[in-house]
Amino acid sequence: MSYDPDTQSQLCPTTLHINGVRHDLEIEPWTTLLDLLRGPLALTGTKKGCDHGQCGACTVLIDGMRYNSCLLLAVSQDGAEITTIEGLSTGDQLHPMQEAFIEHDAFQCGYCTPGQICSAVGLLNEGHAHSREDVRELMSGNICRCGAYVNIADAVEDVMGQQTHAVAAQ
């Protein structure tokens, strides 16, 4: 459907696969993926920290890679496979990164945490971090005002190490 200047509206049919669930939606083009998730879809685990790509709280995974959902128009993601923080755990079984964040106390207020965790999972998927220095640089798109950075780096390194061990064991 095209834009109607009288009603100032346009509803665009859009299909999103979110955490394995298909959503056939009609979306106005000025709705961001972040606002779609937090509003109509009630997936409030994805956080709004600045709404301008300056903090990383809204990080989600699309095809395993991390993105700031605040800067994506939802309509532009038609057909995408999106994973939010709600999709990382299976039932009571936490993702190893979630488990590591708890163990290393890698959060305080918890608000940037879903974004940090999605970003950390994306970091491992993307495969470009090989040292703690790399982890720090490649996690720099996620601001934590509580200042949990040391613990976040510990958590990420912990899971990186687990993966390396798993690969070595194979």
């Binding site: 409030t44 994805t46 709600e86 990382l88 936490l94 979630q98 708890i102 918890g110 965790i117």
Partner: peptide
């Protein structure tokens, strides 16, 4: 409350 925070449920 850690689990609530790391799962986005808080």
């Amino acid at each position: 409350e850690g689990k609530l925070k790391v799962t986005g449920a808080a």
